[in-house]
């Protein structure tokens, strides 16, 4: 719920009150390691915008896979949830390069 509130706070900073009814979608990047359950976030968001000028706004979640670069062989691996080693040399000395995202990318408005 606090994540949904934070999203709305950021939307309010970018959208003038008279334009709120025009907001059709909010595009969000969510990494697989961010701990966000999409359905729960969508539910919290819809609860918060119900009966407000933003009630037409849809939350569109783009899931970002977990990926890492190997510190031994420089291979970039796409990792399955909970598996943290290089797909090439199997080293566990890796640096995550994606998967922790929780970011608002853009807001779309109807004309």
């Amino acid at each position: 719920m606090s994540v949904a509130k934070n999203i709305l706070d950021i939307v309010h900073e970018h959208i003038r009150p008279e334009d709120e009814t025009k907001v059709s979608s909010i595009i969000l990047k969510v990494g697989e390691l961010s701990g966000i359950v999409n359905e729960s976030l969508e539910f919290c968001f819809s609860t918060l915008v119900h009966n407000t000028p933003l009630n037409k706004a849809k939350l569109i979640i783009q899931t970002i896979p977990i990926s890492a670069v190997c510190n031994s062989c420089n291979q970039i691996s796409q990792l399955e949830y909970g598996v943290f080693f290089c797909e090439k040399c199997h080293s566990s000395d890796i640096k995550l390069i994606s998967g922790n995202e929780l970011q608002i990318e853009q807001i779309e408005l109807e004309d």
Binding site: V3, N6, L102, Q103, D111
Partner: peptide
């Protein structure tokens, strides 16, 4: 349709 680019972390205030 118009698009506003945001690219802000949701938890930036907390951070």
């Amino acid at each position: 349709m118009s698009v506003i680019t945001i690219e802000r972390k949701v938890l930036e205030k907390n951070d």
